Every structure is written in structure tokens, then in C-alpha cells.
Amino acid sequence: MTHPTSLPLGAGRWLASWVVTAAAFGVVDGLWLGIIAKGHYERAFGSLLADPANPPAAAAFYIIYTLGITYFATAPGLRGSSIRIAAIQGAALGVVAYAAFNLTGLAVLEGYPAGIVPLDMAWGTLATSSAAAAATAVARPRRAARR
């Protein structure tokens, strides 16, 4: 028997789920970095922050990361028709990815702000999970109304 999360998605559905995932992650991460936690990151990183940010590097990150969210979380959620699967897979990806960034920074960069590590890891976990769950909720097929 084939497990529902192993069923393939068509190319068009996969691309559409990536677009929705990218939009969801872009919105939540933009609000977090641009408004909610902006001051915290500015205080923590100080002069290390690029002003302005590097648009090609930021675009590359968002494209690659949202492709990863789609592959590892949104698509499995869609295949299983489960927002829960997408949220759990997204949380797992988020904690691993943000831990890799933050703990590597803490390990090899002099003066990396240790206080930012748990906050950013928690944010990455929540943002990735939320984006995958939201994208799955939007992109999953709707069941026909019962008559």
C-alpha cells in the first residue's frame, strides 16, 4: 500500500504550492524582520547588519528556502491532505535550518550575539511551520459540498 505522503504531485500543482508557500513565508518573515523584531535584531547585530540589505542574496535565500519548505513540508501536506503534516514537517525543517545558521554563527563568528540564537531558532520553527500549514490550507483541493 502506498502511503499518502509518497504520492507524486503534478508539476503545475507543485509550482502553485511553491508560489503559495513563498507568499506565506514572505509575508510572515517580512512582518517579523521588518516590524515586529526589527529593533531586537538591530540591537543584537549592530554594525554587522548590512544597510541596505543585499537584495540578490536575500532573493536567493527566499527562493531556495521556500523551495525547501515546499519540498519537505507543503508537498507532503498536500499529498496527505493534511495541514498537520505540513505544520510538523515545516517545524522540523525550520528548527534544523535556523539552528544550522545560528549555531554555526555562534561557533565561528567572533561576537555573534548568543542572545539571538534561541529567539531566531524559535522564529524559524514557527515561521516555517506556519508558512507550510497556510500554503497547504490554501492549495489543497476542496471537497465538494454535500447535498
Rank of each mutant, 00 (worst) to 15 (best):
L31P: 03
L33R: 06
L33C: 06
L33H: 10
L33A: 08
A37S: 09
K38H: 10
G39W: 09
R43K: 12
A44V: 05
F45R: 12
F45E: 10
S47D: 12
D51V: 10
D51A: 09
P52C: 04
A53I: 09
A53D: 10
P55K: 06
P56T: 02
P56N: 02
A57G: 13
A57Y: 14
A57Q: 15
A58H: 03
A60E: 10
Y62G: 00
I63Q: 08
I63M: 11
Y65W: 09
Y65E: 03
T66Y: 09
T66V: 10
T66P: 11
L67N: 06
G68R: 07
G68P: 05
I69W: 10
T70P: 00
T70Q: 01
Y71L: 15
F72Y: 01
F72T: 01
A73D: 14
T74A: 07
L78I: 00
S81T: 06
S81N: 10
S81L: 09
S82C: 05
I83P: 00
I83K: 02
I83T: 02
I85F: 12
I85Q: 10
A86Q: 15
A86G: 11
A86T: 13
A86H: 12
A87G: 00
A87T: 00
A91C: 03
A92M: 06
A92F: 06
L93T: 03
L93S: 03
V95T: 03
A97K: 01
A97R: 02
Y98P: 11
A100W: 12
F101A: 15
F101P: 08
F101N: 11
T104D: 08
T104I: 05
T104Y: 06
G105Q: 13
G105V: 13
L106F: 12
A107Y: 03
V108A: 09
L109K: 05
L109S: 05
